[in-house]
Design a protein around this nucleic acid. Structure first.
Lengths: 347, 347
DNA sequence: GTGAAAGCGCTAACAA
DNA sequence: TTGTTAGCGCTTTCAC
């Protein structure tokens, strides 16, 4: 182990400079030298040392990525798409999980910076607590936020257009006859939670439906189930529920059905993400599909645009999602509201 | 950007050697120098360059990992666990997807080696085609295979004990009264597919149940559905089906139910992995839980044991899994077979 | 205990 | 076109 370019040069009977030039092909060398060098390299099993090259070039060909949790299917999908984009351009992915904790996030940011990544893609775990570390990192290296972002708008971002997303969801259930609709999401510690809720409220106002008090917990199946029970125990059951993600929606549907409420006959449920098993759960979930591939491509593209030295206004790219209608929502009502807004169905 | 240890040394009025010693704390320096250096470092915002350190130390503190696909929830779970293990020891993860293609896999292996990763964790995509690249890599750097492995046993491996797994699954359905059982898995291009099928056959023989011809396709929901249809169209419906992974099982259950076969009343279905949504699908899946955390911990531990220079026999660590009984399998029969082995139930 | 200097492997000036 | 050499930033002998 450890055949260097010096060894290759010696074996080929040329200088290291010629060997380097021949190997990289970026400068002219006589065909004969090129031949001798590549033969020597092959015989010795030479493999360039990317670390040395990185030190010399001040470029590692490496992108750091930090997501709250790798296990979350939504982030997994983004990671996969980003990795794919990077492969196209010959770069590699240094992946970290912040475990939803701003302190570990800050630490990971430091080590990634120490490794001299060429850029950073991050989904900050906390809209407030993540601010200093993210802003500091953005000052040192091209950085783009994906999905979640920090408050204040100091760094580039690419994500889904939550307003459009919630508008589609609300209009869809309204068209199905819903008059009273509830939003079930997550507590407002991250940007997605916030913008989805406000998107929902705006959309509800615009569509003229009655938005009841939102139920806010976690982005988990468990919370979906609990929210379902809360609805069951409350005195009015909405005509439709719009959820902050698919996990919540699946849990909610389950709890509702267990409680004797029919979905979609009694209440329509709409999810968010369309990642993982939304299509394969039973019944298949009506949900808003995040344009993950586009988001990843855009993030990688943006990374190439950013010049840390010459700060321009932070870019915000919101990609319009698409509502995917499946079987947890009522189809468009024939003649407006169908009159069964209040009251619980008898299963 | 770009404050080096020289800058720190100058600011502190000491030599770079002292600065280095003070910063690393690995060698004695007078308290006063230690103080001056750390103050200077803080004021200048000094951040050590991990690339330079790696070049000098011939150690990057980086582990490369290659899985067939990041999107597959099983691999995602392993990746997450590995990343977590590495964080504990201050190392970082360079993650790649081979996209189930041996050529891509070989290329990724090369770039990871060029980056001088300290070790490699891989789940080879093809039991045969992956051999040369994996063996070659193992010759250069500590390498451990997780889950899938290449034939010939030339490299360390950690995974689940498929024999134990299938034995538990088969004995469970047998105890529930099943006499005829079918295995639905994937075509035999990777080690998991092979060893699960052979584990199944051994277990069936041992348990004295009648194993019908296995159905082999892909590790996907779609294949599960198709296999279900095949069963529906065939002339005998088994009492139980043991699947190669959870996706297949979920698809199979769906197809069977759609076809009017009750699960678990008419046929029991057992999955494999217990990752992702096995617990949250409806009905919750009886499945064999892969000990993913243990596997990841063991893989990282093994990595530390391997000495490329001093080859010892390849280690194989098979971790015993645990059957998780949920609602797609019949409970233990009171008095043996219940007599409805053949024929299709009327839903 | 401290400093000067070599060297990790590579590429790009700069000369020839 | 080719070779010599400096230097990327760091740590660690080796002298003092």
């Amino acid at each position: 182990m450890g055949v260097t370019i010096h060894d290759v040069a010696r074996a080929a009977g040329v200088s290291v400079a010629s060997a380097s030039r021949a190997l990289s092909g970026r400068r002219k060398v006589t065909p004969e030298i090129a031949e001798r060098v590549s033969r020597a390299a092959a015989e010795l099993g030479y493999q360039p040392n990317a670390v040395a090259k990185a030190l010399r070039d001040r470029t590692t060909g490496t992108i750091g990525m930090i997501v709250p949790g790798i296990g979350n299917p939504f982030f997994t999908t983004i990671v996969e798409a980003v990795e794919h984009q990077l492969q196209e351009t010959g770069r590699d992915l240094l992946l970290c999980a912040s475990q939803y904790r701003p302190d570990v996030e800050a630490r990971r940011l430091e080590t990634l910076l120490a490794r001299r990544v060429d850029g950073l893609i991050i989904s900050p775990c906390d809209i407030e607590a993540s601010v200093p570390a993210v802003l500091n990192a953005a000052r040192r290296v091209p950085l783009v936020q994906v999905d979640r972002y920090i408050e204040g708008g100091g760094a580039d971002w690419v994500g889904v257009d939550d307003d459009s997303a919630l508008a589609q969801a609300v209009e869809h259930v309204a068209a199905g006859g819903a008059r009273v609709v509830t939003f079930v999401g997550s507590r407002l510690m991250n940007s997605s939670a916030r913008s989805r809720l406000s998107g929902f409220e705006r959309a509800a106002a615009r569509a003229g439906v009655n938005a009841t008090a939102p139920l806010l917990g976690e982005f988990t199946l468990e919370w979906g189930i609990e929210a379902g029970r809360l609805l069951l125990d409350g005195d009015t059951m909405p005509d439709a529920v719009v959820c902050g993600n698919d996990e919540i929606a699946v849990g909610l549907v389950r709890a509702l059905r267990t409680g004797g409420v029919r979905v979609p006959d009694d209440v329509s449920v709409v999810g968010f993400d369309d990642v993982g098993h939304a299509a394969m759960c039973d019944p298949p979930l009506t949900t808003v599909r995040q344009p993950v591939e586009e988001m990843a491509a855009e993030a990688v593209r943006l990374l190439g645009q950013v010049r840390v030295s010459d700060p321009r206004p932070a870019q915000r790219v919101a990609i319009a999602p698409r509502l995917v209608v499946r079987e947890t929502s009522r189809p468009v009502a024939a003649g407006g509201a169908n009159g069964m807004g209040k009251g619980r169905g008898t299963a």
